[in-house]
Design a protein around this nucleic acid. Structure first.
Lengths: 213, 213
DNA sequence: TTGCAAATGTGAGGATTACTCATATTCTGA
DNA sequence: TCAGAATATGAGTAATCCTCACATTTGCAA
């Protein structure tokens, strides 16, 4: 008795700028809007962020905000996109020239530390990735990002274990990466000391899996 | 000023019934409210659930709803609490008499299958645990639940590996359990086939960790 | 039974907030 | 120079959570 599934329900749609700023003036204003949003998220969390407050702090009208962002989530999404783009390059570089088990262990361990440090230090990043499960657009972005990152890991695994089934390696890499993100979220939501222990435990667990044959 | 002492910080406080129903009549009505909420969540998700709609479907006024639930999240929380209470007993039973590695492997594998099946079959459970990251009260409930479940696992590990450091075993069990919940959420958000593979990969990974020395 | 306090029931309306739109202003290119 | 595109504005709209003053029902002691 269900309706025929619509290909894309409005809720799932990824929000993109309603109109790309083409003039220098508007580009600067959009930057101010994002900066204001970022500051407010750091202070209160994205849920408590009010559109009127973003506009006021950016020194623009509420109408201007909606000129470039179709809705509230689009602003958060735009910020999230920047983080993923930045981190992706970093991850690619760290894993690019890994060629043996020892190298993987070292690179992976460092990556986890960097990520954990980022989560601890960047309230905006923390907030955005916490809300990730609830917001479908964000969830899709995170999944896409995670798949991309997992591919770097898959590439390394294929070099280290050429005999293994490629599909299995892909699944393993994707799972390990996602578990890492979940471990980070968990770690930052408990006491710092326990968080550290959990991250360390994750490292051991992940490496055991990555290096198993 | 208020005589009713409510020593609570509004944001983080776990929402409990504003007033426990003491008469038979009101208990039945509260049940109807929860049933209506459950149905609506199954249909549209808890985010799209409207308080007015819950009241209407339960055949009560909006005021009655707020007589027993301080806010919208409290309804979701009440439903979540039931699921956790139910599943906890099931988990305790499954792990209670595990005494060797083989038994753990079997019991754990079955538990994962049951959980995965539940997530796939129960839209309400799926929805509630998806929103878990965003809602602090829900997150706390899930953490508490997870710790409780991890304790059963810890007890088993202590029996199997009496020489190991207890604190390490506790961390391992908690992490493995949380990773399991994350794996479930991941698995149900991708294609069924990939989800199955991810759950299988999680099983291998978790068991390798649990049975390692 | 009767009376009364406590428990419960009600729904119009207050308050907040995301978002729109008619209109005004600024910019760009020919 | 000037038409039209891009941008800016903010009062107003709509949706929705939740309150509150008042009505009704229930439990129970006299």
């Amino acid at each position: 008795m269900e309706d025929t599934a619509t290909p894309v329900s409005p809720q799932d749609q990824v929000a993109s700028p309603r109109r790309a700023p083409s003039q220098q003036r508007s580009r600067e204003r959009v930057e101010r809007m994002l900066a204001a949003a970022s500051a407010l998220i750091a202070e209160q969390g994205s849920d408590a962020m009010r559109m009127g407050e973003v506009a006021e702090r950016a020194g623009v009208s509420i109408g201007s905000l909606y000129q470039f962002f179709p809705d509230k989530r689009a602003i958060v999404w735009a910020l999230a996109e920047r983080y993923t783009a930045e981190s992706q390059a970093c991850i690619a570089a760290a894993l690019a020239d890994v060629s043996d088990a020892e190298g993987l262990g070292k690179a992976f361990s460092e990556l986890v530390d960097i990520y954990y440090g980022l989560f601890l230090a960047e309230p905006v990043m923390r907030d955005i990735w916490s809300g990730t499960q609830a917001d479908k657009a964000l969830r899709q972005l995170e999944l896409a990002d995670s798949r991309a990152n997992a591919e770097f890991l898959t590439a390394v695994l294929k070099r280290l274990r050429p005999a293994a089934d490629p599909a299995t390696l892909e699944t393993t890499a994707f799972l390990v990466w996602q578990m890492g993100e979940a471990a980070m979220r968990l770690a930052i939501s408990v006491e710092r000391q326990e968080g550290d222990r959990l991250v360390a435990a994750y490292k051991r667990m992940a490496l055991r899996e990555l290096l198993a044959e």
